[in-house]
Design a protein around this nucleic acid. Structure first.
Lengths: 236, 236
DNA sequence: GAATGTTTGTACTGGTTCGTACATTACGTC
DNA sequence: GACGTAATGTACGAACCAGTACAAACATTC
């Protein structure tokens, strides 16, 4: 029985597979990212209590020991994943530039973009669902995510302000409330697909149906903020 | 050390505390309900993997043994809870009678009712969230819930049909899609409150703000189905 | 090239948790 | 009032799983 726990003679290949050129044999930052990626998958898939540290470790290029070394405990790892998820998704939102567009068009694009963006990030949606199940206990404990989210509302505020000034939006619309409605239509469309499919089938989730739903979301939001002046600038 | 596991001399009081008059000493149906109620609370609170059978048993007037006797295993119990939750909530919806109302009014009431109904049943919402995390694996495995849900859509179909016939609703609105939107606005308002509060504070969840959100939900849905005929029956 | 702190691997442990073996009691019924 | 079955209580087992003890290898600085 070989009890020597010394250096195993398997090929070494320490950390040079990163493809980013850095031939660092020790690569703490890379290990961190590696763990975070694996943990993100597993947490999103199974939830906090459902996830197994050993499974996360197995999906890693490193070992369980490293998880505890870098993240302390399971919750610490979970919190880091949560922040990373918020961070990544919110960063993706910044790509959208609505500066030059007329307010109604800008809002329409924002809604459509949000709808699509949520669809593109199901893992993020799942993390938020899980966090809501936990009554946001861990999100509350982290100051990171708040900043980026306020940016989303700030952008909405700006669009509303412009629309109000131009007289195309009715005054007094609360940006936060509007954000709430937009999020609802976009988030639910991803989060509740499984139970809905189970009850009513898949028909709402074809590309065509989704495009229709998105168009309706845009319509509904615009209808809510539009200044209804029947026969004011009617072209006729 | 007393190793006799015989009849303990504690007062007997077998099952007469039910307050419903039935002095049955053995009460299988009551035990079932008792377990189901306790399990419903715990599963809604902690999720499937987070729930502990021992905790459920502790909240019961009976023992863990009975859980396995009646429900087989943890999943069986969870499935029973899920069905019970759907059943109870859908039964509560049947109270709403919209028969005599004009279509727009009926739809408005339906949306407002749905919005409130979701708020009144947070535990049900949580069960659905949890089930969505599990990709509806357990809901799919049960045929029960489907029936009652179709009734909700059927009612919506009827309202749309009438509205279309009367010319107040535009034709071709898909009842299932409309149900999706209504559900989104109502469900999300409960399901995502924790993370939203964590990021933006509580302001949207005061009674006044909720009333406003509900009014907006009604408005948005009506705007979506309304026949836009600018200047047709304008009183002027 | 030695000293010192950082990063990593291996094996293990202590507590938790689902589920069950075994025994016993109530109930219906003939 | 005996018998078969349904219902229930107690104690326990086996697996699982978060977290750690111990020790080694690397990196950095002088």
């Amino acid at each position: 029985m070989d009890t020597t726990t010394g250096p195993k003679e398997k090929e070494v290949e320490p950390a040079e597979g990163g493809a980013d050129g850095a031939p660092a044999r020790r690569d703490p930052e890379g290990v961190r990212r590696d763990i975070l990626a694996a943990a993100g998958e597993v947490f999103a898939e199974r939830g906090l209590s459902g996830a197994r540290i050993d499974e996360i470790a197995a999906r890693t290029r490193t070992s369980k020991r490293m998880i505890y070394y870098y993240f302390g405990d399971k919750e610490g790892l979970y919190r880091a994943c949560l922040e990373a998820a918020y961070d990544e998704v919110r960063r993706g939102e910044e790509a959208l530039d609505l500066g030059g567009l007329p307010p109604a068009e800008a809002l329409a694009r924002l809604v459509a973009f949000t709808f699509d963006h949520h669809r593109r990030h199901p893992a993020f949606i799942r993390m938020v669902m899980i966090e809501n199940i936990h009554r946001a206990a861990h999100l509350r404990a982290s100051r990171v995510a708040a900043e980026r989210n306020r940016a989303a509302v700030a952008r909405l505020t700006e669009i509303l302000r412009r629309g109000e000034a131009e007289g195309v939006f009715r005054p007094g619309v609360d940006p936060l409330e509007l954000h709430w409605h937009i999020s609802a239509l976009s988030f639910f469309n991803v989060s509740n697909r499984p139970t809905f499919s189970a009850l009513f089938g898949d028909e709402l989730f074809s590309e065509e149906a989704q495009a229709r739903l998105r168009a309706h979301a845009v319509e509904m939001i615009l209808a809510l903020v539009r200044q209804e002046e029947p026969g004011d600038d009617d072209q006729a």
